[in-house]
Write a protein that binds this DNA or RNA. Sequence first.
RNA 1: CGGGACGUAGCUUAGCCUGGUAGAGCGCUUGCUUCGGGAGCAAGAGGUCGAGAGUUCGAAUCUCUCCGUCCCGACCA
Length: 588
Amino acid sequence: MKYWSQTFIPTLKESPSDAEIASHKLLLRAGLVRKLGGGLYTYMPAGLRVVQKISQLCREEMDREGAIELSMPFIHPADNWVEGPRWPAAREIMYRVDHAGAGKGRAKEPEYVLGPTHEEVITPLIKSELTSYRDLPKNFYQIGTKFRNEIRPRYGLMRAREFIMKDAYSFDATDAAAIVSYNKMKRAYTAFFTRCGLKTIAVEADTGVMGGSFSHEFMVPAPVGDDDIVYSEESGYSANREKATSGLVPKDLADAAPVGALEEFATPGIVTIAALAAAPYNAAPDKQFKTLVYMGDGKPFLVVLRGCDELEEAKLGTLGFQLWRQATPEEIEPVMGAKPGSLGTVRGTIKNPTALAGIFADHAIRLVGNGTTGANKDGFHLRNVNVVRDLEVTKFGDFRTVRAGEPDPKSGAPLKIARAIEVGHVFILGTKYSEKFGAVYTDDQKQSHPMIMGCYGIGISRTLQAVIEQSNDADGIIWPWNVAPWQVLVVNLDPQDAAATELCLKLAQAAEAAGVDVLIDDRAERPGVKFKDADLIGLPLRLCVGGRGLKEGIFEFKWRNSKEVRKVAIAEAESVVTQAVREAASKA
RNA sequence: CGGGACGUAGCUUAGCCUGGUAGAGCGCUUGCUUCGGGAGCAAGAGGUCGAGAGUUCGAAUCUCUCCGUCCCGACCA
């Protein structure tokens, strides 16, 4: 048991002005964390306890599914990343670590980086440690700090530059075995989040190139989340919006026949979808083709969408480029022959088509059939543009953002969209890393094969905040039993009174004997302060002892998630506390 | 990386527009009175007004630069 006066729980009456959302305010007000800088937080004693509890639950569930704990360095030689398969993309988010000391660290390239994740470390390790199919399967995990140069840290621990993560990596001989490993992790995650008292939705994140459902994200529905999930209660379909598809384009859609000859018309000063939709042109957005220019690994490529649709940039990941970004007007004009606003992909109108890495069209443009697009000549557009007859397309694909209300690809029912916090992700990696690093095993036919890998992450610190975000009220946090820094708070209203102090100790000992952690508020504070702090820090069970109750021969018993205050006779103290604690523990 | 807002005591903030001795509440210290839902009274400590430069007789206040923080967006042809 811990005495409040002997630990440090600096509660705040008011929220610091830089906290915006409930969970962030409560993290600060309940004295769980303090900010060092943007996205950098100190875990105060009570906050650290929660981190440790969540970590322990995670550890238990990982162990249960046969994963093996180890611990890898935070600092990685940059070479591991340079030799890996994603250096160009990964270097953007990694902090570089140069040699300390005067006169050093002048190298243009970093010599060391702070690890944002550990594929580049564990794969070379496994390459030298595991060589036979008899060694497989194996799944290694660790719980530790990760470093990512987040573009915009947000909402306290929710998106931080430095955060605590559980990461696991599985190694298997076959695809089928990898799926077994994957399903074990999915099961572990479900069990883990449930034990944390967190309601999560496992969302399919189709991997595109791999096909099938080999990736799931565990999402906590919350308006403050960074992700959108697209789902249908009817069919159970659920996916991250970045990957979600809809049944907007029927499978049996017949391509439209041309409606007339291609016709160029002058559109001076018209460079937006909206302007072209207005009089006198009256080309409805869903009858326009929108042409976007991107740069993929240094080469321009085009994406064609309906005028009314939006590009889901994450879907460009299926095209095979390492890095992509929007092209600048300076890059666009020499290739297309016109400035943005007059672009199109009608055959023969692109100035320098050989410069292009491809023209990728969203399936939905087939719904347009015949429409309007830019003529690649400033101030001119083309009408009667037929998808099949006129448009140059390298490949069709799914590139648009799904909207709420579109038909679910499975059931056809309208899709819904909600915000959510991603707290976990399970993913089959295939042989991306094992091939690059030469992590191969020998099978029973003496044949060598790259191992099939999976990776599995849980944001421990983010989970902590997600729990608070999901479980609080106007007075403070309402901790779920298993992750509370202490399960029971014994409030001593009269710490000067020997009888009160003695009863508090008795209650605390009874709870502790029943197997839970107890905090005793022995501070010389006024009752009002203690009650407010009790609600704020949100321990599940509050036992309150004061002179008033002692006279009646009772103490007070109150659950944080209920308004009811129960008076319990001192004579029954031990049995009531023991029973309550055991019951709560068995339900959690 | 754009856009917006902000930066005054440990915390929350007023003052800035319209330049003239920096104010309050909470917290802290001391004393008295209180003592079951963030007590009252009295006295006190605590500020390079984010940093630098400029304008001015005079700058928290006006101008510029930088730094930091928070929010929005990473948006389109």
